[in-house]
Simulated assay, not measured.
Amino acid sequence: MTALGVWQLQRAQWKNGLIAQLDANRGKPAIAWPGLAAAKDESLLYRRATGFCLEPTAWRAIAGRNLQDQPGWSHIASCRTGGAEGPGMEVDVGWSKAGKAPAWKGGSVEGVIVPDREHRIRLVASNAPAGLPPSQAGLPSDLPNNHFFYALQWFFFALAAGVIYVLALRKRQQSAVALPPSVADGKPEGGR
């Protein structure tokens, strides 16, 4: 359990470094939408980017917030960006109180690259091309970083286990002292 606590402290240091890197990405110059994103390429996250959606091929709505922090729906278009296959692009085209897909037909988009659970990354449009208010892109500091508290929890468990072990040993020792010598040696009383 102590080793798990130390591991969580190491994870906390790693997460702090990641959040600092992602914060630094926010200040970097805008890039073109990447054709293929590496599975764990943190250098893209929270960068400003531009892209072109030839046409939306599918829509999904997820719980989201607008820039005034109101809850509602963020509308995400799966866009065709090149040939019939191609990697495509996920674009959060804006926010609304209703989950119905907007009537956006595609076009130029600029915004911020954020993590996406289904497609690794997506572009949250800052210009909200569908005529909707922009969705919140979020901040790197919004990423959960509970590792320090998990470490404290593991250290507490280790301490509790140690205390229980000491109490069990003490009780065992007291039980051995309380027994008559013949019972403690395993001999029945009466010498037989």
Rank of each mutant, 00 (worst) to 15 (best):
Met1Tyr: 11
Met1Ile: 07
Leu4Glu: 08
Leu4Met: 10
Gly5Cys: 05
Val6Cys: 07
Leu9Phe: 03
Gln10Lys: 12
Gln13Trp: 02
Gln13Phe: 01
Trp14Arg: 10
Trp14Lys: 10
Lys15Asp: 03
Asn16Val: 02
Gln21His: 04
Ala24Lys: 02
Ala24Glu: 01
Asn25Val: 00
Arg26Ala: 14
Gly27Lys: 05
Lys28His: 14
Lys28Arg: 15
Ala30His: 04
Ala32Phe: 07
Pro34Phe: 12
Leu36Gln: 13
Lys40Ala: 14
Glu42Arg: 12
Leu44Lys: 03
Tyr46Gln: 06
Thr50Asn: 11
Leu54Ile: 12
Glu55Leu: 14
Ala61Asp: 06
Leu67Thr: 13
Asp69Ser: 13
Gln70Val: 14
Gln70Asn: 13
Gly72Val: 08
Ser74Lys: 14
Ile76Lys: 07
Gly82Phe: 01
Gly82Ile: 01
Gly83Met: 10
Gly88Phe: 08
Met89Val: 06
Glu90Cys: 11
Val93Gly: 00
Gly94His: 08
Gly94Ile: 11
Lys97Asn: 09
Gly99Glu: 15
Arg117Ser: 15
Pro133Cys: 09
Pro134Val: 03
Pro134His: 04
Ser135Asp: 08
Gln136Met: 12
Ala137Tyr: 09
Asp142Leu: 06
Pro144Leu: 08
Asn146Cys: 08
Asn146Val: 07
Phe155Gln: 03
Ala158Pro: 00
Leu159Ile: 11
Ala160Leu: 05
Ala160Cys: 05
Val166Lys: 06
Leu167Cys: 11
Lys171Ile: 00
Gln173Pro: 01
Ala178Ser: 08
Ala178Glu: 08
Leu179Thr: 02
Leu179His: 03
Pro180Leu: 11
Ser182Lys: 10
Asp185His: 12
Gly186His: 04
Gly186Cys: 00
Glu189Pro: 13
Arg192Val: 13
